[in-house]
């Protein structure tokens, strides 16, 4: 089916990819059907796009990317409401707030979106853990992840032409200068 959106123009969506939010999202209780858009940019941010209102989309991300220790503890009733026994067949996303000053971006760790990937039903679940923040600043952690990610890539691609000459050229002068001075000082 074709869905027109304000951010991504017209998108073709397979009916089986549409996710039902029985209760909507907090503040958006009237919107029940969404799908995930991957714009394929470097930020790893996806969008939860409303089917019913083309202007409504939430930037989302997998919290494990910037917070590997994050774990979602659901109550039995919450598992039941999503027809889940555990999180093995579920996806967990956090909704991001991205203000004009993008370095102040934050993630809602208190109320993640949990999706049953098999049945395509989902809820935004308010977790009981009082330490979790609604606006958890995470720009620096995301940047760390992305910088590591890209620098790993560049190491891989450049390994043959640059790896041999550059370490010697850069390392050898510094190795020479440091030991040459230090022993002398120690001896004196």
């Amino acid at each position: 089916m074709k869905i027109s959106t304000t951010r991504f123009n017209e998108l073709e969506v397979d009916k089986k990819d549409i996710i039902s939010f029985k209760e909507g999202l907090l503040g958006f209780e009237n919107l029940k059907k969404f799908f995930i858009v991957d714009p394929g940019d470097q930020t790893l941010i996806l969008w939860l796009q409303s089917v019913e209102d083309g202007s409504v989309a939430f930037p989302i991300i997998e919290p494990k990317i910037f917070n590997p220790d994050y774990s979602v503890k659901l109550l039995p009733a919450e598992f039941a409401s999503l027809d889940l026994e555990n999180l093995n067949t579920a996806s967990v996303y956090t909704i991001l707030t991205i203000p004009q000053n993008v370095t102040e971006m934050s993630a809602n760790l208190k109320a993640p979106v949990v999706i049953n990937n098999v049945l395509k039903i989902a809820r935004q679940i308010v977790l009981q853990d009082s330490k979790l923040e609604v606006r958890h600043p995470m720009y620096i952690d995301l940047k760390k992840y992305i910088v590591n990610f890209t620098s790993d890539d560049s190491k891989r691609t450049n390994i043959t032409p640059i790896a041999d000459p550059s370490p010697e050229e850069i390392m050898s002068p510094s190795i020479k200068t440091v030991p040459a001075n230090k022993p002398m000082n120690k001896e004196l």
């Binding site: 503040g27 909704i95 809602n108 308010v126």
Partner: peptide, 9 residues
């Protein structure tokens, strides 16, 4: 959470 959702959207 409502406010965060609204701002996020």
């Amino acid at each position: 959470i409502q406010e965060q959702n609204t701002e996020a959207s």
